[in-house]
């Protein structure tokens, strides 16, 4: 029987808290922020490591991005990934969520056997949350989104808790399957020094467009394969509210009077 195999797709993103935005030009100043692994993907990786510790198996981390996204994959190895694949090619540039999902799914198909795919709920830069379920669709496997807890982890299925329809659901997902996870799931641990050293010398496989053409159809990749495109960027006018500041020892009283005037019965 094949080894239990977990796949974790990871994206390298700009540190969204630090990134500067040039309002005049309507452009992001990418040099202002360092890159980091998408924080949600670290929760996905942490859960993969926990499952591996419990039932054994191996973890493949996979990323699509420019050559420097290798750093993110090395970090993922330091955090417990066994094997890393970087999908990098000019032909992947300009991918929207569909083309991205298709590319990742095609690479996963090429890997052959897998049991469980774990994705972060969304990325902090794109903020769509679409890629996980779209990968599942391309691979034609079931998925559960917004998993905030894994309850029982087995080799044939996993029992998870998810929040949907204003309720908590306990669902059993048969493998092969995919889950997307929220930040409530776990606390990602930091890489140890030994693992960091191991990651430094780890081999990162690189696959380009040509490597994916036996499992994928060329017309779905990159900008040409992307049904959506950004046609315009609008820099919204900040509403800029004029703060009325209440001062003095009656400030709280004046504030409450004002709010009662505006809102009525409070």
């Amino acid at each position: 029987m094949a080894n239990f195999s977990i796949i974790v797709p990871i994206k390298e993103v700009p540190d969204i808290e630090k990134v500067n935005f040039d309002r005049e030009k309507g452009r992001i100043d990418r040099s202002s922020a360092t890159s980091e692994p998408n924080p949600f993907d670290l929760n996905a990786l942490e859960e993969a490591v926990k499952i591996k510790e419990e039932i054994g198996g191996n973890i493949t981390v996979i990323s699509m991005g420019p050559p420097q996204a290798e750093d993110t994959l090395r970090d993922a190895i330091a955090r417990g990934g066994d094997k890393a694949i970087l999908l990098t090619d000019k032909g992947f540039a300009g991918s929207d969520t569909w083309a991205t999902s298709y590319t990742l799914a095609t690479a996963i198909k090429k890997l052959g056997h897998y049991d469980l795919i774990i994705c972060g709920e969304k990325t902090v830069d794109g903020d769509t949350g679409q890629v996980g379920p779209e990968i599942a669709e391309v691979l034609d496997i079931p998925h559960v989104s917004y998993v905030n807890k894994t309850i029982e982890r087995g080799k044939d299925s996993i029992i998870v808790q998810t929040e949907v329809w204003g309720r908590l659901y306990k669902k059993e997902l048969k493998f092969p399957g995919l889950i997307t996870v929220t930040k409530d799931l776990n606390e990602p641990r930091l890489p140890t020094l030994t693992n960091k050293l191991k990651a430094k010398s780890a081999e990162i496989e690189r696959w380009g467009l040509d490597d994916l053409l036996d499992t994928g159809d060329e017309k779905h990749f990159g900008i040409k394969g992307s049904p959506t495109s950004v046609v315009n960027i609008e820099v919204p006018k900040e509403k800029g509210r004029k703060s009325k500041i209440f001062e003095g020892k009656d400030a709280a009283k004046k504030m409450v009077e004002q709010l009662r005037k505006d809102l009525g019965g409070i």
Binding site: D96, T97, S101, G132, P133, V138, H143, S145, P227
Partner: peptide, 22 residues
């Protein structure tokens, strides 16, 4: 919603069409 954001990518993926989020 959570359900919509989980269902819509599956529908869009099956139809091989674009989906704009949120």
């Amino acid at each position: 919603t959570h359900f919509g954001r989980s269902l819509a990518p599956r529908v869009a993926g099956a139809l091989e069409t674009g989906l704009t989020a949120d």
